[in-house]
C-alpha cells in the first residue's frame, strides 16, 4: 500500500483542495474481504458546507472527494449526517467528476451522481453508482477517516488490486 507521508494542502484551479494525509493504519471491515487502510482525510470541525476536499484512497491512483453537503445523506457522518465521500472517477469511462449543486457531474457524457443518495446515477450513462467511501469520525477530535469503499472503483478488477 503506497500512501503519502507528508501533510500538505494544495489549492487547485477549481478551488478544491488536494489533501494528502499521513497516519494510516490497516483495518479489516466486517463484510469485506478487502483490507482497506484507515486514512485521515479531514476534520468535521473545519469542513465547510459545499466546499469539497480531494484526497486519494485507498491508494494514490484513486482520487476521491470529501464533502459536507448541508443535508442528511445516506451513510453520511457527523452531527448532521451530511459528510460523505466518493471516488471521483466516473464509473462510466473513468473521467474526473466535479462536485456542484449536491451532485458529482462528469462532463465527458454528463453522468450525474447524487451525493446525498448513495452516489446514485440520477442522470446519464453510468450504470454503476459511484463508489461511496466508508467514513468514520473520531467524536472527540472530529477527525474524519476513510476506511473502506462501497462499490468498485473505475478501471479496477478489485479496489486493492492495482500495482
Amino acid at each position: 500500500m503506497k500512501l503519502l507521508s507528508r501533510r500538505k494542502f494544495l489549492q487547485s484551479s477549481t478551488a478544491t483542495a488536494l489533501l494528502f494525509m499521513a497516519g494510516c493504519k490497516k483495518q479489516t471491515r466486517p463484510g469485506s474481504k478487502a483490507d482497506y487502510p484507515s486514512l485521515k482525510i479531514g476534520n468535521s470541525k473545519t469542513l465547510k458546507p459545499n466546499q469539497p476536499l480531494t484526497f486519494n484512497f485507498p491508494d494514490r491512483q484513486s482520487p476521491c472527494v470529501l464533502v459536507k453537503t448541508g443535508s442528511e445523506a445516506i451513510d453520511g457522518i457527523g452531527s448532521q449526517k451530511d459528510i460523505v465521500a466518493f471516488s471521483s472517477l466516473c464509473t462510466h469511462m473513468g473521467c474526473p467528476v466535479t462536485y456542484s449543486k449536491g451532485r458529482l457531474i462528469c462532463k465527458c457524457h454528463y453522468s450525474m451522481f447524487d451525493v446525498n443518495r448513495n452516489g446514485q446515477t440520477f442522470q446519464g450513462l453510468a450504470s454503476q453508482w459511484i463508489p461511496q467511501i466508508v467514513l468514520r469520525e473520531d467524536p472527540a477530535s472530529g477527525d474524519i477517516f476513510a476506511e473502506g469503499v462501497q462499490g468498485l472503483i473505475y478501471g479496477r478488477i478489485g479496489n486493492l488490486k492495482v500495482s
Binding site: 462510466h92 473513468g94 473521467c95 474526473p96 465527458c108 454503476q128 468498485l152 478488477i157
Partner: peptide, 18 residues
C-alpha cells in the same frame, strides 16, 4: 492488463453491473 489502473476513455469497461 488488469493489474494496472484503467485509463479514462480506454474503451474497455468492466463494472459491477456487467
Amino acid at each position: 492488463d488488469l493489474s494496472k489502473q484503467g485509463k479514462l476513455m480506454s474503451g474497455f469497461s468492466y463494472t459491477e453491473t456487467m
